[in-house]
Design a protein around this nucleic acid. Structure first.
Length: 545
RNA sequence: GCCCCCGUAGCUCAGCUGGACAGAGCGCCGGUUUUCUAAACCGGAUGUCGCAGGUUCGAGUCCUGCCGGGGGCGCCA
């Protein structure tokens, strides 16, 4: 076990159990948290306040009894425990606890922060999935960074995960795209609802040079999509996002999957005809109205493709499907869940993450990105201006349900102010210290037994060590909540704790028996933690800056 | 009209399944370099956590109703 905090928590739960004496279990589990003030100790728990009602005793009295139990269980790891406020238990940990924690973190090696897998089962994360009708926009960059990081978090949590890009290479949008290319080839404006972006003109020129005819819309559609998709692939590669599969919507049509799923739904009695169209009775499953699967003209809707697609995912053996969708698709959530039920599946296995927009700030104010209108900042532009690391951090810092404002001017300016450099700088500083100490010294420090040191542990060392101990819990929470932004916050806090440690504690040449060694070990731990944290965000950790 | 997201310091946002006087970054003011990277550190200022009720020993966090901003309600995707 390389998780000292989990051990502390286990002790709190055990003490709780002992005091409860088999009585009723409270509805919520006790907390173990870093209290807001140093006077409140290293960790505190609300266990007594949770137990008090079920025991019908005063919280502070329960706390006193818990304190006795905890003292017994934690032994010399505990310096003292205090009952405070309405019934909090404040734990003050001994230097010995910190040395032991250090030893445990060291034992984890490069796997620092990893916990034993709690869930298994393969997961498919589908994200970006932008139409191949134009370049990736900044919004695509947000989706890509998010989806990729969620996959990294899940992998780290021990799950088998794959990344998939669904290519909408069929349907009405593609037809409009082809028509727009054709129009540009003839020197005309794109049709209404067409794609007005400049890149279409460029694309038209390219296709013309290849000898395609402006009226051969089918060829324009296929070739145009291929070229756009190649561009998207290139951008994602530069961005460090690698998909395991690119799933073509067209391939579903070609394989007859739409007809197959339609037949099955019909057989299950969920389908009816009306106004010449074919409908799925989604209202049976909580949707507010029924949805069309086949238009009056017999053309399948995107919805039908999507049902066939999701069934295909399940047939490929994934036990959990995570789709990252833009906010403009949130209206589809209900019907997609309904479709899962219509297929006789548990709608819970399908998880839909709705990503809020990226707004572009221009001098006139905010404008939403529109690929059709050609108003957007491309991901390539961002990568050119501020690079992959800064872009990723910027995109991941905010929770997925918060709108991100992107001011390109600011983004360029922000480059050096981007918090990612703060974190990377901490890493580079550590690397510099370790270089100065030399390999031999560092290896010796890592091989030594931290618990053998008797010099006092400085406050800054304790703070840093506590932060490092949080990594397993943070990474697990971030994975479970599909919330990479938590890792950004953690990275900042870890870097800040390191910088404070750097200020207060000399490492190389530090006096005191074993002090230099234990600090080199601490530096190594911090370095590993930062590498891990940034790695989960898909961001590099440079050895020097 | 119905549904989703947001409303926390001048700005951009954290705040985990409710917990102890509300945090970070940026910006602003002042300070720190014979010592391992000053892309750093230290100090200072600023908040009716949109409003009103409710649940609770305790609410920024949960419930209800409003107000404000964004988005969605297609036989487009």
């Amino acid at each position: 076990m390389s998780d000292p905090v989990a051990e502390l928590y286990a002790a709190v739960e055990a003490a709780s159990g002992a005091v409860r004496e088999g009585g009723e279990t409270g509805s919520s589990r006790p907390t173990l948290e870093r209290p807001p003030k140093p006077e409140f100790g290293d960790y505190s728990t609300n266990a007594a306040m949770l137990l008090a009602p079920t025991l019908d005793q005063k919280p502070r009295d329960v706390a006193e009894r818990l304190a006795v139990e905890l003292t017994e269980r934690l032994g010399e790891g505990l310096e003292r425990v205090e009952v405070a406020g309405p019934g909090f238990l404040n734990l003050f940990l001994s230097d010995q606890w910190y040395r032991r924690a250090s030893a445990e973190l060291l034992a984890a090696g490069e796997e620092i922060g990893r916990r034993a897998a709690e869930e298994t089962g393969r997961v498919l994360v589908e994200f970006v999935s932008a139409n191949p009708t134009g370049p990736l926009t900044a919004a695509g960059g947000r989706h890509a960074a998010y989806g990729d990081s969620v996959v990294r978090l899940l992998e780290f949590a021990g799950r088998g995960v794959e990344r998939e890009y669904y290519v909408n290479d069929a349907g009405g949008q593609m037809a409009r795209f082809a028509a727009s290319i054709g129009a540009r080839m003839k020197g005309e404006q794109p049709p209404e609802d067409g794609y007005e972006g400049e890149y279409v003109i460029e694309l038209a020129g390219k296709l013309e040079a290849e000898g395609l005819a402006p009226d051969d819309l089918d060829a324009l559609e296929r070739r145009g999509a291929t070229l756009m998709l190649d561009e998207v692939r290139g951008t994602l590669e530069r961005y460090g996002v690698e998909f395991d599969s690119w799933f073509s919507e067209r391939s579903l049509h070609d394989a007859g999957k739409l007809d197959a799923v339609l037949d099955d739904l019909r057989e299950a009695g969920h389908i009816y005809e009306s106004d010449g169209a074919t409908w799925l009775r989604t209202t049976s499953f909580g949707d507010d109205k029924d949805r069309v699967l086949l238009r009056a003209g017999g053309e399948p809707t995107y919805y039908l493709s999507d049902i066939a697609y999701h069934r295909d995912k399940l047939e490929r053996g994934f036990e959990r499907l995570i789709d990252v969708w833009g906010a403009d698709h949130h209206g589809h959530v209900g019907r997609m869940k309904a479709a899962m039920q219509a297929l006789g599946r548990d709608p819970e296995v399908l998880e839909l993450v709705i990503m809020q927009f990226v707004h572009v700030i221009d001098p006139d104010g905010r404008s939403q990105m529109s690929k059709r209108k050609g108003e957007f900042v491309t991901l390539d532009e961002l990568l050119g201006d501020i690079g992959t690391d800064a872009t990723r951090f910027f995109m991941l810092q905010r929770s997925h349900d918060t709108t991100v404002d992107l001011d390109l001017e600011l983004a360029r300016r922000i480059s050096n102010d981007n918090p990612v450099y703060y974190v990377q700088y901490a890493h580079a500083r550590i690397a510099s210290i370790l270089r100065k100490a030399g390999e031999e010294k560092v290896e010796g420090a890592l091989a030594a037994d931290p618990t053998a040191v008797s010099e006092p542990v400085q406050q800054a060392e304790k703070e840093l060590l506590k932060r490092l101990c949080e990594l397993p819990g943070e990474a697990r929470d971030a994975a479970e909540r599909r919330a990479p932004h938590c890792m950004c916050t953690y990275a900042m806090a870890t870097a800040a704790d390191f910088h404070a440690f750097y200020r207060d504690c000399q490492v190389v040449g530090a006096g005191g028996e074993g002090v230099e060694g234990s600090r080199l070990a601490l530096c190594t731990l911090a370095k590993r933690a930062i590498v891990r944290t940034l790695g989960l965000l898909g961001i590099s950790a440079p050895e020097s800056m």
